[in-house]
Amino acid sequence: MLEIKGLEASIGDKQILRGIDLVVPSGEVHAVMGPNGAGKSTLGYVLSGRAGYEATAGLATFNGADLLDIEPEERAALGLFLAFQYPVELPGVGNANFLRTALNALRRARGEAEMDAPGFLKLARAEMKRLSMPDDMLKRNVNVGFSGGEKKRNEVLQMAILRPKLAILDETDSGLDIDALRIVADGVNALRGPDFSALVITHYQRLLEYIVPDRVHVLVSGRIIRSGGPELALELEANGYAGMVADAA
């Protein structure tokens, strides 16, 4: 369970998050929607520990562990995963090598046995087949020369292999065509279960047709101004953020 209480955060001197309260119980998928500049991505970065995104007040815990005090890799070991809005290129680093190193780092941190190369390849191939990804995706360098859609699919592949307990998807739907959107959604839906929760950050309601959230939160100017069921997303789509901001004010 992810619990956020009174979370405030700044980038440099600029306050972005102004007191976020949010609880995502295990097994649930929550969507965070909001206009540009509302602080959606900042929320994802603060939770996953990106340098420069400093929590200045409040708490964030995952299954009872304080997230804000530990390194990004320790958060990953707890089961956090951030699917990036702009996945980063790693020239010369093979996707398979990257993924296996990451998987084994997580396993080591959790006191589990490392996975050998053949075992890993078997796992990776099975996941790729499920996600309709071509085999050469593993051989290519991490995100280098990938199209926008391929990058996002690669994030989903990583998620499928690393099996997080809490996935934060930062506008994973942006720039995707309808087929890619479906693949991404399938990837998330396949992980759904009692031990998995997700925070889906998005601009648009479209993704939520495929990943149906348990709750929708509207983030505006660093605060959650409304929360509700999936129908809230439809309301947003119809009326836009402006109306809702006016209502909240």
């Binding site: 990106r50 070991a77 690393l162």
Partner: peptide, 11 residues
Amino acid sequence: QLFYCRSRGLS
């Protein structure tokens, strides 16, 4: 690049 790797669990 560093953050990307670390968010996947690498030190």
